[in-house]
């Protein structure tokens, strides 16, 4: 089912989550799963449904690094900049990715096509350097891996 408005979302939340503050994170995960981020109207519905003041929903949402308040680009490229990855060439990967994106970064409507992010560690340092493309991890990554991914989207 496509959740497009407050009422369907509310009905959906009512089905999935009991009205209990402990359900906040699960509900926000649900929202992010549906939309790729937390739209403000959606957080408002979560606030009603769980009986938590909207400011506190927002306060919590902005405190978790994996929750997104703003809509990300169609793709998300993350480059690990942890120590093992840096030691094994993460800087080069990052520079090459941002080089691409600098020239081809936005859609006509101004939204990013690819959101480039850094992470502190991808938790597989034994396979450094690591990048992540739309939630898929790539270990022992090389500039070639990036060359493979990015032209695909920026050429469209």
């Amino acid at each position: 089912m496509v959740i497009s408005d407050r009422n369907t979302l509310r009905a959906e939340l009512r089905k999935e989550f009991p009205r209990d503050r402990g359900q906040l994170l699960p509900a926000l995960h649900f929202l992010q799963h549906e939309f790729g981020y937390l739209p403000d109207w959606g957080m408002e519905v979560v606030s009603w449904h769980l009986g938590i003041p909207a400011s506190e929903v927002y306060g919590a949402a902005t405190s978790y690094t994996e929750l997104r308040i703003r809509r990300p680009g169609e793709h998300v490229l993350r480059v690990c900049r942890g120590i093992s990855c840096t030691l094994n060439g993460a800087d080069e990967l990052y520079d090459s990715a941002s080089g691409y994106l600098f020239s081809n970064s936005t859609e006509a409507d101004g939204t990013e096509c690819v959101t480039l992010e850094e992470v502190g560690c991808a938790y597989m340092c034994g396979l450094a350097p690591v990048i992540e493309w739309d939630h898929q991890l790539i270990g022992r990554a090389t500039v070639a891996s990036i060359d493979q991914l990015l032209p695909e989207v920026s050429d469209r």
Binding site: P53, A54, S55, Y58, G59, S63
Partner: peptide, 10 residues
Amino acid sequence: FIGAIDFIGT
């Protein structure tokens, strides 16, 4: 118990 404001961000 109004909750108009909260600590936001980190």
